[in-house]
């Protein structure tokens, strides 16, 4: 009970910190913060997909589907952002549900490649069909959200908006994971044959995780494009997908907060080392390799690892 209170306190403190943080940042850093918060949702939703043990390579494209949906609804059909935002999630989720039929006939390597192929086919369609997707230049001049006359072109209001929506989504994602469904998802991953023997339809649960994860990343996509104001196909290519993978793995895919930790730390490092320029991707690559080799459970396992090291060095400590 005490531990639970402590966690709650920590979360409240972090949120409070985030509320005042943008006021101490420079303009372009405020933008950076908005994108970072959106990316937290991207990684957290991706983790839900991977819970069943199936790593997809289509998550970035699912984000794009959300972005294109919301962009096109607001721009061409004059939908309000507040309606297009959930619809972005719905369309991405539906697409995932449809794709589940072919894709989940396969597992592991085949699923990975299949999801990659399906994603590329979707992305290339955005490029090829200029009507209505706008080709490589995408769709621009997307409207900002409107609410009580707040100016969402300014970074701080948009940051609060993003923070509120992302926090809500994270709470839901967390609840899903801790619910019965979440436990079943874990079981599908680690004990698939056993799960099936007790009557769990693994296909259903894989689809559920894939659809739900895609829904949330669709929302993340919509959130991002209404700040940038432009949606282009190249934002959602394999390059971005790889970053999602790296964030998750470096942070640690086994726990909820590990993934979030990964995206935050890496993004800040990335921004700090802009100077490195052309060699930046190589640093990313090297970090990725080192982590998978030496810290496969990610950053979140680091404190434990250090602790057990120390314990190992002084066995007496383990009694206290």
């Amino acid at each position: 009970m005490l531990a639970k209170h402590r966690t709650l306190m920590t979360i409240v403190l972090i949120l409070a910190g985030l509320l005042i943080l943008p006021h101490y940042l420079k303009y372009h850093q405020q933008d950076f913060l908005i994108f970072l918060v959106v990316n937290v949702l991207v990684v957290a939703s991706y983790r839900l997909v991977t819970l069943t043990g199936e790593w997809s390579l289509i998550h970035a494209v699912m984000m794009g589907i959300g972005a294109y949906t919301s962009g096109m609804l607001t721009k061409f059909l004059d939908f309000s952002f507040w309606i297009s935002l959930p619809l972005a999630g719905v369309v991405a989720g539906l697409t995932a549900a449809l794709l589940s039929f072919p894709l989940f006939r396969t597992t592991q390597f085949y699923f990975l490649i299949g999801s990659f192929a399906a994603g590329e086919a979707i992305r290339l369609s955005w490029i090829h069909f200029i009507r209505p997707f706008g080709g490589t230049s995408g769709i621009s001049a997307l409207p900002s959200p409107e609410l009580l006359g707040i100016d969402f072109l300014e970074p701080i209001p948009y940051f609060y908006l993003t923070l509120a929506i992302v926090t809500a989504c994270l709470v839901i994602l967390y609840r899903i994971e801790k619910s019965r469904i979440g436990l079943t998802l874990h079981a599908v991953h680690w004990q698939a044959p056993l799960a099936e023997s007790v009557g769990i339809n693994t296909w259903n649960y894989r689809t559920l995780a894939f659809t739900t994860g895609s829904m949330f990343v669709g929302i993340a996509g919509a959130l991002k494009v209404h700040y940038i104001g432009t949606v282009t196909p190249n934002q959602y290519g394999i390059g971005f997908m790889v970053f999602i993978l790296i964030w998750l793995i470096v942070g640690g895919y086994k726990t909820f907060y590990g993934a979030i930790l990964g995206v935050i730390i890496l993004s800040i490092l990335d921004e700090m080392f802009r100077e490195l320029e052309v060699i930046r991707p190589a640093v990313y690559g090297a970090v990725l390799i080192l982590f998978i080799l030496y810290l496969p459970d990610g950053l979140e396992s680091l404190p434990q690892k250090i602790a057990s090291r120390i314990k190992g060095a002084s066995p007496k400590g383990s009694h206290s």
């Binding site: 420079k26 303009y27 372009h28 933008d31 950076f32 994108f35 991002k224 940038i228 432009t230 282009t232 190249n234 934002q235 320029e277």
Partner: peptide, 20 residues
């Protein structure tokens, strides 16, 4: 500012150039 033809980076870079 190098935006590497990325819209997100372009927006950040633009603000940096103007405001900072």
């Amino acid at each position: 500012y190098d935006h590497a033809y990325d819209t997100e980076k372009a927006l950040q870079g633009f603000k940096k150039l103007v405001l900072e």
